[in-house]
């Protein structure tokens, strides 16, 4: 697989308990299906967003998912506001990012 780059996450630094927060994620990745080129397949299989240890949003990638996958979604913020975002490659390797939202 290609080397996984550093994910980019955009979310607010603080929020009230129960407040809606917008989360945007981007991972630079070629997402090569291997269908129409000689390049070997190089695809992510899953993205997961966890809040306080619980999976709150996920996505299973298939061939029609664009390169440099990006997502926007809206979460009800809950204390303590610890977020983990994980992208898993078809070969089993993964890259994660951790973010904290201060909940008041």
């Amino acid at each position: 697989m290609s080397t996984m780059s550093t994910p980019r996450i955009r979310l607010p630094g603080s929020a009230s308990e129960g407040e809606e927060i917008e989360i945007r994620t981007l991972l630079t990745h070629p997402m090569i299906t291997g269908v129409s080129s000689d390049d070997p397949r190089d695809m992510l299989t899953r993205f997961e967003a966890r809040m306080n240890g619980e999976t709150v949003f996920a996505y299973d990638f298939e061939n029609g998912s664009a390169a440099n996958p990006t997502f926007t979604f809206f979460i009800r913020a809950a204390a303590p506001g610890e977020f983990t975002f994980t992208w898993t490659h078809e070969d089993g390797q993964s890259v994660s990012a951790e973010e904290s939202v201060s909940i008041s």
């Binding site: 809606e20 299906t33 269908v35 129409s36 809040m51 619980e54 999976t55 709150v56 949003f57 996920a58 996505y59 299973d60 990638f61 298939e62 061939n63 029609g64 998912s65 979604f73 809206f74 979460i75 009800r76 809950a78």
Partner: peptide, 15 residues
């Protein structure tokens, strides 16, 4: 070339 684009999985934690 293949029909699958992707699948989102949602929970009530989403607003």
């Amino acid at each position: 070339p293949a029909p699958g684009i992707g699948s989102f999985h949602l929970t009530p934690h989403l607003t």
